[in-house]
Amino acid sequence: MIEPARTSVFPRALAARLVSVTIGDYQAIGSSTIELAIAPRRTVLVAKGGTLASLLVQGIAEGAHIAVHALSDPEKPRHFRCEFEGDAGEHLVYGYDRRFQDLEDDDEPFPPSMRWEEHAARTDEANVDLWTVRDRRAVFGDGSRISLPSGVGALALAGDSADRVPEDLRRIRAYLEGIRWLGLALARPPIEDRTGVTLTGRSGVLWTSRGLDARLLSLASTLVIWFELHRDRYNKVVELCQRIGAPGELAVQITRDTSARADVAPQDRASITFEGVDFGRLSDAVIRRLELLVALVDPEATALLIEEPEIAAVPGSIVALLDVIEACADHRQLIVSTKSPHVIDWARPDELRFVEKNRYRDLSVRSLDFSELGAAQAHVAAGGKLSTFLAS
């Protein structure tokens, strides 16, 4: 999900990158524990039919979101682990386990519905624990301790108590908080039931719209705030629309409240249109294009998790969209699921990951093995397409 522009206490340019992510006990894909090796810049996931690759991308995004916000939804990944490498060669690992218990459990008179366990460490030459969370208590490497509410980890604590936690904790939280998930499905009513969207609130501070899905509200409010306060970002989104072959006019209109009670009950209103069509009535493809371009411009983003970008592309312009993603990603890592040969050809052979089910219907992820990788690299070097090699 894209978050509205805001001032952050965390560094924007993080001297770290993801090396691997592990998720497990995730209802959408079963009880399998899946480890995904992340390429330094771009990781492209493919699967034979279905949506397995996109579900894995979604699971990574949801695992990171839960790590930061300590959500109790049992359908989301119950196990999450990630490894980072810093520019100085340091290695950090972070992981949580969420354990759900029946309220009839006799271990305690009032047991929590969810127990949160968390661990982070340096695994380079230092090889030290950074912190652990167990039994509602965070214990840091220096021996200090902080009591936590039930079902809450140290990363969630860091948002309000950044002065009480180690620098490495802030780095890990900043990376995970900066992940932008650009999912395939949008929570929207049928086309015939869609209506216009008006945002209300206080100009330059907060915009909201009752009944609008959180993901769509985040996109709309970000566009309005950028139009008001960060016109360079807004103009960049407009420019990128042109570059991907979607040259329609993006327009924001704000109506100021001048009533006597403006300081008590914010009544400012804002609307967004693209090619003259109200935001609430735009097609899903147009919404996803805008969402992707905003994520590329967002200075707080650390990684972009994109499900099937080919669906968001202007028809016949997938190459232009991929070129813009490549040019604007900067230091951000890209994790992309796809069914498109164009996106496969955009990747290098060592950036491909194959999501597969074995005969027991367990999921796994693999890269090209040594011989496959050599053959694929030779095929591409000779002018062939990677998608053709995979199909042969």
Score class of each variant (00 low, 15 high):
258 T>I: 09
259 S>D: 11
260 A>G: 05
260 A>N: 06
261 R>W: 13
261 R>C: 11
262 A>Y: 10
262 A>K: 15
263 D>T: 13
263 D>H: 13
263 D>S: 14
264 V>P: 03
264 V>Q: 11
264 V>R: 14
264 V>H: 10
265 A>E: 14
266 P>A: 12
266 P>T: 11
267 Q>Y: 07
267 Q>D: 13
268 D>Y: 10
268 D>T: 12
269 R>A: 15
269 R>Y: 08
269 R>H: 11
269 R>Q: 15
270 A>Y: 13
270 A>I: 12
270 A>N: 14
270 A>D: 14
271 S>I: 14
271 S>K: 14
272 I>D: 14
272 I>L: 15
272 I>F: 12
272 I>Y: 13
272 I>S: 11
273 T>S: 15
273 T>H: 11
274 F>A: 09
274 F>V: 12
274 F>H: 13
275 E>P: 07
275 E>D: 15
276 G>A: 11
277 V>G: 08
277 V>M: 14
278 D>K: 03
278 D>C: 08
278 D>H: 06
278 D>V: 07
279 F>K: 07
279 F>T: 07
280 G>I: 09
282 L>S: 05
282 L>M: 15
284 D>E: 11
285 A>K: 06
286 V>D: 04
287 I>P: 01
288 R>V: 05
288 R>Q: 09
289 R>C: 05
289 R>S: 05
291 E>I: 03
291 E>P: 00
291 E>V: 02
292 L>Q: 03
292 L>M: 09
293 L>H: 04
294 V>E: 01
295 A>G: 08
295 A>L: 02
296 L>K: 02
297 V>K: 00
297 V>C: 05
297 V>T: 04
298 D>W: 00
298 D>A: 00
298 D>K: 00
298 D>P: 00
299 P>S: 04
299 P>V: 01
300 E>Q: 06
301 A>I: 02
301 A>M: 02
302 T>R: 03
304 L>K: 01
304 L>T: 00
304 L>I: 02
304 L>C: 01
305 L>A: 02
305 L>T: 01
306 I>H: 02
306 I>Y: 05
307 E>K: 02
307 E>L: 03
307 E>V: 03
307 E>G: 03
308 E>C: 03
309 P>L: 07
310 E>Q: 12
310 E>N: 10
310 E>F: 07
310 E>V: 08
311 I>M: 12
311 I>N: 15
312 A>G: 13
312 A>L: 08
313 A>K: 08
313 A>D: 07
314 V>Y: 12
314 V>L: 09
314 V>C: 08
314 V>E: 14
315 P>T: 11
316 G>C: 11
316 G>K: 09
316 G>W: 11
316 G>Q: 08
316 G>I: 13
316 G>P: 10
317 S>N: 14
317 S>D: 12
317 S>K: 15
318 I>Q: 11
320 A>D: 15
320 A>Y: 05
321 L>F: 07
321 L>Q: 06
321 L>W: 07
322 L>A: 09
322 L>K: 02
323 D>E: 10
323 D>I: 01
323 D>V: 03
323 D>A: 13
324 V>E: 06
